[in-house]
């Protein structure tokens, strides 16, 4: 299905440079822009996601907005990935287990994990 994707992209680029016609994806710029975060977060139903995607990727007006939001998202992802929060320190874990046992907890200690995720 790669060629389909390529063809769509090509058609999209053609439309971006072409005259203003009917709304790409069959929805208005406003309707598409409203859903940009939901689309990026994978929160839209399949049908709406397809329409919003088709619009954002092919509309001359909205395409830069999509690129802008994607670039912001990528920068945040990069920053967050570079500084993963540390796992719960051993002494805190020990303190928690001690306080749980003081309240009647009799289960086993949590398994030794690699720490963090």
């Amino acid at each position: 299905m790669n060629w389909m994707h390529d063809l769509k992209k090509l058609l999209g680029r053609a439309r971006r440079t072409g005259p203003e016609g009917e709304a790409p994806g069959g929805i208005s710029c406003r309707d598409a822009a409203e859903r940009v975060f939901e689309w990026l977060d994978g929160e839209l139903e399949a049908d709406m996601a397809a329409r919003v995607g088709a619009h954002l990727e092919t509309c001359a007006h909205c395409y830069p907005f999509l690129r802008f939001e994607s670039a912001f998202r990528a920068a945040v992802e990069r920053a967050v990935a570079g500084r993963d929060a540390p796992p719960c320190p051993d002494q805190v874990e020990a303190r928690i287990l001690a306080s749980l046992r003081a309240e009647g907890f009799q289960g086993p200690d949590p398994p030794e994990g690699p720490g963090g995720e």
Partner: peptide, 23 residues
Amino acid sequence: TESPSKDAAFAREALPEMDAVYR
């Protein structure tokens, strides 16, 4: 004394989330 199943369930389900909750 708490029931063994409560202890086991808490140890199995809640305790492994300690790192995630800490984060």
